[in-house]
Simulated assay, not measured.
Amino acid sequence: MAEHIVVVGAGYAGLAAAKLAARWTDSKVTLVNARDRFVERVRLHQFAVGQQLRDVPLAAVLKGTGVELVVDRVTGIDPDARKVQLTNGALTYDRLIYALGSQADLGGVPGAAEHAHAVSTQEDAEELAAALRTARTVAVTGGGLTGIEAAAELAESRPDLDVLLVTAGGFGEALSDKGRRHLVKVFARLGVEVRDHVRVTEVRADGLVLDTGDLVAADTVVWTAGFAVPDLAARAGFAVDGRGRMLVDHTLTSTSHPEVQGIGDAAAMKRHDGLELRMACATGLPTAQKAVRALAKRLGGGVPADRLDFRYLNQCISLGRRDGLIQFVNADDSPKERVLTGRPAARYKELVVRAALMFQRHPTMPAG
Rank of each mutant, 00 (worst) to 15 (best):
V7Q: 00
G11D: 03
G11I: 08
Y12W: 06
A17I: 01
D26A: 13
V29G: 00
V32G: 02
N33Y: 00
R35V: 04
D36V: 00
E40N: 09
E40W: 03
R41S: 09
V49A: 09
Q51S: 09
Q51V: 05
Q52E: 15
A59P: 02
V61M: 15
D72W: 05
R73N: 11
I77G: 01
D78M: 11
K83Y: 06
T87N: 11
L91C: 10
Y93H: 10
R95F: 03
I97D: 01
A99E: 06
A99G: 08
S102Y: 04
S102D: 08
G107E: 11
G108P: 05
E114D: 13
A116Q: 04
H117G: 02
S120P: 02
T121S: 15
Q122I: 09
E126C: 03
L132V: 11
T134H: 14
A135K: 03
R136Q: 14
T141R: 11
G144E: 07
T146Q: 08
E153T: 14
E156N: 05
L161W: 13
V166M: 02
A168C: 11
F171W: 09
F171S: 04
E173K: 10
A174Y: 10
D177T: 12
K178V: 01
R180A: 08
H182K: 07
V186P: 01
A188S: 15
D196I: 00
H197E: 14
R199I: 00
T201I: 11
V203Y: 00
D211W: 09
T220I: 09
T224H: 07
T224L: 05
F227L: 15
V229K: 08
P230C: 13
A234N: 05
D241H: 05
R243S: 14
L247F: 03
V248G: 06
S254D: 04
H257S: 06
H257W: 05
Q261I: 01
G262N: 03
G264W: 01
A266D: 02
A268N: 12
M269S: 13
R271L: 04
R271Q: 05
E276I: 10
P286Y: 11
A288Y: 02
Q289A: 10
A291S: 15
R293A: 15
A294P: 04
A294F: 06
A294E: 06
L299V: 03
G300S: 13
G301F: 08
G302M: 13
F310L: 11
N314A: 15
N314C: 12
I317P: 00
S318D: 09
G324A: 09
Q327N: 10
S334I: 07
S334V: 03
E337I: 00
R343Y: 12
P344C: 14
Y348W: 15
E350W: 03
L351K: 12
Q360W: 02
M365V: 11
M365H: 10
A367E: 07
